[in-house]
Design a binder for these strands. Sequence first.
DNA 1: GTAATTTCCGGTAACGTTACCGGAAACGCT
DNA 2: AGCGTTTCCGGTAACGTTACCGGAAATTAC
Lengths: 345, 345
Amino acid sequence: MNKPATIKEIAKQLGTSISTVSRALRNAPDVNADTKKAVLALSDELSYQPNRLAQSLRHKQTHTIGVIVPNLDYVLSMMVKGIDEVALEAGYTVMVCQSNESFGREMVNTRRLLDSLVDGFIISVSSETKSFEHFKKIQERKIPLVVFDRITPHLVAPSVRLDNEAGGFIATEHLIEQGYKRIAILAGPKNLGISNSRLEGYLNALKKHKMKRENELIIHCEFNQDYAFFATKELLAMKKRPDAICTISDRMAIGAMLAIKEKGLRMPQDIGLIGFNNEPALSLVTPTISSVEQPSFEIGKVAAKLFIQNLHNSEDMSGVEEVLKPKLFIRESSRKILQRNGRLK
Amino acid sequence: MNKPATIKEIAKQLGTSISTVSRALRNAPDVNADTKKAVLALSDELSYQPNRLAQSLRHKQTHTIGVIVPNLDYVLSMMVKGIDEVALEAGYTVMVCQSNESFGREMVNTRRLLDSLVDGFIISVSSETKSFEHFKKIQERKIPLVVFDRITPHLVAPSVRLDNEAGGFIATEHLIEQGYKRIAILAGPKNLGISNSRLEGYLNALKKHKMKRENELIIHCEFNQDYAFFATKELLAMKKRPDAICTISDRMAIGAMLAIKEKGLRMPQDIGLIGFNNEPALSLVTPTISSVEQPSFEIGKVAAKLFIQNLHNSEDMSGVEEVLKPKLFIRESSRKILQRNGRLK
DNA sequence: GTAATTTCCGGTAACGTTACCGGAAACGCT
DNA sequence: AGCGTTTCCGGTAACGTTACCGGAAATTAC
């Protein structure tokens, strides 16, 4: 009772051979109905569980997916949940590693998962990563690799992501429609794709509405609350200060909010503010902060689906590129004009 | 170049036997220094990686830890991070499963991890779980099992947890010291251990300060914001309403806060409020909310250390019980008296 | 120079599973 | 009855690794 039963044990007790037992268990056609029944009964009684290790060794696949993410914040943990959901359904187990936005950790994680013999990878690359050799080596070995959320042109692989350009666009256009005239943007690090796309959306919105791009209103700063706080203080200290701030993450929006409050300005009257990701905290703070929501859970699910397709088809899918649309949540921080049809939350 | 090199491959190229290669790689004493050097050189050149599956099959251990948690909220994800930290250090990989507070999912996860052949389990039991047979079966098979955070007397195993009684106590005593006279508590489900311990701490604080226990001030409700919101509305509708509310989670505190605001009461003047866990959002809301912090990361680390000890010693450690102390963070929602030495954040 | 010891290495079996092959027994057909 | 076909089963090798054993060659001891 201590050790789990093996196929050999069943064979011995039944006085048959292990190959017959193996076939019976896998419901092979060339085994007698009665013996099949007997095997099944006994294996049930001994509560037989096939040894995954042995199976994996034999089949050279582990039914495990390696997932590497830069962190487990609100958005990414939802995406991981989406991946998990689909993977489990399809009989795959997921191993999640955090790179903590560090290139070194990302390489270590890749290596570790690789020698844990995962069947493939679903990856969101760290912001620090500029060389992609460790991922290309994976691809050379013909190991399936899907990227999501943080995409880079340097890595050609099936991908899933938010339409970040659209996100930046609708946020900015919303501010414009509310009558804001000098809209600043707190963007992220310059080499980060999602940041640049959102910035591009911002610029496109300005262009569409015939507003001039002003470089002093475009701030690149780290992806967190404190940097955003200080960046906003500087923005507000300008002679011609902006009358609205567009951010590319909620953490940054909160940093901005604190700086705005400290300065004694009111939202949305004196200055408009909008975040990105729509974390729950945004509807708890005062004023409540508008934000762009992305379908995180869905993105995770699509990533896993793509991965599994890729695994089965094994034809080249590197061109596949799924892009999902964001949604705007308007709250107090940006609702300067009373709207009849503004969506509340 | 496509397939990873095996020990056999190295042996062939070197014109030696696989056992020699194996021994050389493991630095066994009975192998010539020169051959050892040759093997190491070649294995390096071929970038040989031992096949984990084969090793695991041979050694009957996978160097993998199965972790089951009810969810991945702020506290638990910090704990998991702590587990991860220590486990990685010790050469173990962690597989995390969420039970979503569901008994069924918990059983499924246990089963899945079991046949993924994890070396053992680190578990925080779901609130729904009342039968522990699935865990006891693990123990009967002599598979190491450590429980953390959500402990139950029905499961005898090495454990790590917060001193929940102390948490409830310091929160309540703080409110008492601030001069609140009618202190209500929003507790969790009746069968949840951590809830009961915190409630006990609350009662002990009342007793110490010679205050009467009043059953109508003790509310059992689900562990989330909405339930807490409605429960608080009822509390505030009483003829003799409470002048302070102690909660056992921050989510509940936020629900309570919303109800208090809706009623038009001010914190801390009209009513005091304190949360539990000290999530970051608490310092963003207005007013900022006091809370009891637990050393989550540390708890995770201790859990993993205990697990690894248990794995190596293999002596009975079921009596081991680590209990860590909470810390009080006082903010606006409960600071009625201006204190000289109140800790701010 | 023989015996005893050390040094080093190869062969084999095993971990638990599955794929493949070959063959015995049973059946169907004329 | 003789032949071919089907049905069912067992043996064997393999996945990549390691533990164990036995033995050849080299070294030491007298």
